[in-house]
Nucleic acid binder design. Structure first.
Lengths: 192, 192
DNA sequence: GTCTGAACAGACAGGTCTGTCTGCTAGCAT
DNA sequence: ATGCTAGCAGACAGACCTGTCTGTTCAGAC
């Protein structure tokens, strides 16, 4: 039934291959054949498992959502001060952007390339989660308008990913954290 | 030779068609056949004029660069105070995002979709121009570190376009201007 | 031993893509 | 009148795409 050897089940191998190829080269550019070849899986298996390429893209994005959520939540948990907790997502982004293979935000890239409904829903879910997380942290930090501060931080977060991708310059992400810190100074009561 | 009737030369018609279709649906999604059909131009004319699809995409982006440059420079010229001049690009973005057909930054979308060298060069040129413009304005405003401030504003500018595209919410761009204003307060000597 | 079902391998259909090439038309210059 | 050239129309090549389908292999259940 479900294979449990080192390489994992066909589903896991497909997701791993999709994650590598889709992120590096784009969901539209990479065809099904490339994915199944790298996964070592038959085409029929892909279609019986996911149903369509759009669903595979959505599953790939959901996997990234989950890993980002874990990573960001862990980074937040490492800090006590509300201010540091609000900056934690930018620290995560800084780590990611330091990698040679960094290609920006997978969600932004996917919606720019593809227009499938399942993929769009996965992107919306990720954005809603991040927005809510930031809003809750802003409220806990005593921001006068938590939703507005969260929106501004989300803007910076998106901008950092885009700029880093297009300029190929990791310094961009450090600048985003500095800008976020300046916004916090303006929005939080006396150095929360 | 060069046609000068209402519809313009084949080159102009091709650029107009490319501008509409590429921006609305994406440079990768829209094929050559759609462009020439809308332009009312033969395929051979497209290839004798531009040489390849990548070059057509680059020409489309150069056209947008030129129009954005004019528009932003006009908006800057309308203001005297250095602070208002630095915020002018965000005001332009706000106008653009108010349109129903707004789909975010054409340059960001194009590089996310396509990887042609000519198109990449066109995007780099646009980004360099905007960065230089912001840096010069920041220096004129007396910023302690004009390059750093320009980088932060550029980040916000990119983020606003991305967020507005993905969230379909023009309020995002207003938030970007507010965030930019807060950054200026922090970076400029006493309300320049 | 037999049966079942998951997965592999790969052909196939039907469509789309970029880019080339062959004719044809029509205006302009000489 | 004749030739030249820009441009139109559309066939064509060759590649690639998604998604379906046929046949085969093989591990485990009974």
């Amino acid at each position: 039934m479900v294979r449990t050897d080192v390489a994992g089940s066909p589903r896991e191998r497909l997701l791993a291959a999709a994650n590598e190829l889709f992120y590096r080269e784009g969901v539209h550019t990479v065809g099904i054949d490339r994915v199944i070849e790298r996964a070592g899986v038959a085409k029929a298996t892909l279609y019986s498992t996911f149903g369509s390429k759009d669903e595979l893209i959505a599953a790939y994005l959901e996997g990234r959502h989950e890993r980002m959520r874990e990573r960001i939540e862990r980074a937040i948990a490492r800090h006590r001060s509300p201010r540091a907790r609000l900056l934690a997502p930018f620290a995560v982004q800084e780590e990611l952007a330091a990698d040679d293979g960094y290609r920006g935000c997978a969600f932004a890239n996917a919606t720019a390339e593809s227009h499938g409904p399942a993929a769009e829903a996965a992107v919306a879910a990720y954005r809603a989660w991040l927005r809510e997380t930031l809003t809750a942290l802003a409220a806990a930090a005593g921001a006068r308008n938590p939703a507005a501060l969260a929106r501004q931080l989300h803007l910076l977060y998106d901008g950092a990913a885009q700029s880093a991708r297009m300029d190929h310059d990791p310094a961009t992400v450090r600048a985003a954290r500095a800008a976020a810190a300046a916004l916090l100074d303006a929005a939080l009561p006396s150095g929360g």
